[in-house]
Simulated scan of single mutants.
Amino acid sequence: MKRNFILALFIFSVGSLAIACQRTERFLDRIEPPVKVINESQSRRDSGEVPVLNQEVPLREKVPISKEVLKTWLPETVGDYKRTQLISGHREDSGIVSVLADYQHQDSQELKVKVEILDGAGENGSILLKAAQERLKLDIEENKEGMETRVYLLDGLRVRESENKEQQFAEIEFVDQNRYLFQIKGFGISLSQLWEFSSKASFNQP
Score class of each variant (00 low, 15 high):
R44Q: 12
F10H: 03
V37I: 11
F27I: 11
P34R: 06
Q42F: 08
R30N: 07
F10P: 03
A20S: 10
S47Q: 13
I11T: 12
I31N: 02
G15D: 01
F27Q: 11
I19G: 02
I31L: 09
L17W: 07
N4E: 11
Q22N: 12
C21W: 07
V37H: 05
F27M: 06
D46R: 14
P33W: 01
T24S: 04
V35N: 04
E25K: 09
R26D: 08
P33G: 03
A18S: 13
K36S: 08
P34I: 05
D29F: 01
L9I: 13
S47V: 03
L17Q: 09
T24W: 05
I38G: 00
R44D: 12
E25R: 12
R45N: 10
I38P: 02
A8K: 14
N4L: 10
E40C: 00
F10T: 14
R30V: 02
C21Y: 08
N39W: 03
L7D: 05
V14R: 02
S41L: 13
S41T: 15
R30I: 04
R26K: 14
A20T: 07
A18K: 10
A8T: 13
R26F: 01
C21H: 05
S41Q: 13
A8I: 14
N39E: 13
S13V: 15
